[in-house]
């Protein structure tokens, strides 16, 4: 499934948060959205997810406008993966994943065998079946993030939108979670994730969307977009770029 954003603009009163943002993400693409804090990344996601509706422009999924879709219809096409959080009540990992099937089940019934199977498959797919009956608030941040990804998979949407999936994770969990995300893209999911780490974006993403002051600053492959100039413009820092392993990894060394 492709997701296309056309001339999207959004403002809170006189504050123009997003100005004419346009891009397309296709099947199997992992798009990293880069930009400093408060630049409109979250607002962009909220518009795409239908959480904000008073925007100009449009979001199309396989050519269909999301504006006329109900919450249920949109949920079957686009899933959102928040940062790992602590809910008010402790659910088992399995119950948390099962909630992803809300859009498939009628309002007055509970999930059936098909949904239960989906949840078990998603746990197995992310290699966290052993956490099935643990409490969601009692597992590690990386495991919580994987649980939320599993929840998005049972939603059966093919577009996944992730808000800084690795921001609160330790180094090992960052790599493990990113490896899972990359393999989902290789399976054909369309993934859009925001990140604060340009080297991580370079390593995993196959498209980069850089946003500055609510506008698209750069859009393209990691190799052609991620350079010293982009880092200076986005974050106001001078860096040296060192390349390793045939330029599959780029490390940014700040100029101190």
């Amino acid at each position: 499934m492709s997701i296309q954003v056309n001339n999207l603009s959004f403002s809170y009163g006189d504050n123009h948060v997003l100005k004419d943002v346009s891009f397309t993400a296709n099947d199997g693409e992992l798009m990293a959205v880069l930009g400093p804090n408060g630049v409109g990344k979250s607002t962009l996601f909220r518009c795409m997810l239908g959480l904000l509706r008073e925007y100009k422009g449009e979001t199309l999924i396989n050519g269909e406008s999301t504006r006329d879709m109900s919450a249920r219809e949109l949920a079957r096409r686009v899933a959102y993966i928040p940062q790992s959080h602590y809910p008010a009540f402790n659910y088992s990992v399995f119950d948390m994943v099962l909630m992803g099937t809300m859009a498939q089940v009628s309002s007055i019934s509970s999930p059936g065998k098909r949904q239960l199977d989906l949840a078990d498959k998603a746990l197995a797919r992310l290699k966290i079946s052993h956490l099935r009956n643990r409490g969601y608030t009692q597992i590690s941040g990386g495991e919580r993030q994987l649980t939320l990804i599993a929840r998005a998979l049972v939603q059966e949407a093919k577009v996944l939108i992730m808000d800084e999936p690795t921001s609160n994770l330790d180094y090992g969990n960052q790599l493990r979670v990113m490896a899972e995300i990359k393999s989902l893209a290789e399976e054909g999911y369309t993934i859009i994730e925001s990140t604060h780490s340009p080297d991580q974006a370079f390593m995993y993403a196959n498209r980069i969307l850089a946003i500055l002051d609510g506008q698209v600053l750069a859009l393209g492959s990691p190799r052609e977009t991620i350079n010293q100039e982009l880092i200076r413009k986005l974050y106001g820092v001078d860096v040296e770029i060192h390349s390793f392993k045939n330029d599959s990894i780029r490390i940014f060394v700040p100029d101190l």
């Binding site: 959480l51 686009v78 899933a79 928040p82 809300m102 007055i108």
Partner: peptide, 23 residues
């Protein structure tokens, strides 16, 4: 009783509930 399973998703907050297809 009929809506009880749906109440779960409200404990996660409005935005998350909506992205899972619940008004």
């Amino acid at each position: 009783l009929l809506l009880r399973w749906r109440i779960n998703v409200l404990t996660l907050g409005d935005d998350e509930a909506r992205t899972m297809g619940v008004n």
